[in-house]
């Protein structure tokens, strides 16, 4: 564990807590894409299958349970909780996210580190996570300006993988044989997809306006 990875995990945890805070306290998911949340639930479900077979550390297992529990409960809230579901913007959240799942699965079957069931699903979860934010970014452009909590959620979600890139650089220079091209490229693509959002997000900080 290094400071970059810890900062990345804490940023990721913060993004999930901000979203849960928004949905649980003000009972609103306005501006939040259910489709992105569904993709993230699949990402964690396919990435953490080894939670039962391989024990890394208490921290690792605990965080996996937190991410699994929060992603599925957010989907449940947005789908079935009466008050929250009412604030869900169904007409605008129309990105065909299921079209993202199949190509990621095919790609994982073609490009992976090891051809085993767990490894292919783990690789699939990496590819899927790289594009999971797309429905949310499309929704963002349709609903003109968003509230601060949603903006902070997306900012933290984009930032965590950026910190992971620093973690990979650090591990590359400090651990022999630490080379994971698939993870690095997927993480880089994922972070680059936020570039446009980061630009407007920082403009907001400088200009003090809402996220246009």
């Amino acid at each position: 564990m290094n400071i970059f990875r810890l900062a990345g995990d804490m940023t990721h945890l913060a993004s999930v807590l901000v979203l849960l805070l928004k949905i649980h306290t003000i009972k609103s998911c306005a501006g939040v894409s259910l489709r992105t949340q569904e993709l993230y639930a699949i990402v964690f479900a396919t990435r953490y299958l080894d939670i039962f077979t391989s024990f890394v550390s208490v921290y690792n297992t605990f965080m996996k349970l937190v991410f699994l529990g929060s992603s599925f409960s957010i989907v449940w809230y947005m789908r079935y909780h009466k008050a929250v579901h009412r604030t869900y913007d169904r007409e605008q959240d129309t990105f065909r996210h299921w079209f993202l799942v199949l190509p990621c699965l095919v790609l994982a079957l073609l490009i992976h580190e090891k051809f085993t069931f767990l490894e292919v699903l783990w690789t699939f979860s990496l590819y899927l996570e790289a594009v999971a934010i797309l429905p949310q970014l499309v929704l963002l452009q349709r609903t003109r300006n968003i509230d601060n909590l949603t903006g902070q959620y997306i900012f933290l979600l984009g930032g965590y993988r950026g910190l992971y890139i620093l973690n990979w650089i650090y591990r590359y220079f400090t651990e022999p044989h630490f080379v994971h091209w698939i993870t690095w490229i997927a993480g880089l693509v994922q972070t680059l997809l936020y570039a446009d959002f980061f630009y407007y997000y920082f403009l907001r900080f400088i200009g003090g306006r809402g996220v246009e």
């Binding site: 080894d50 991410f67 490894e119 993870t183």
Partner: peptide, 10 residues
Amino acid sequence: DTPKGFHDEL
């Protein structure tokens, strides 16, 4: 660290 091949990152 973790057994070879397992992923130790989240």
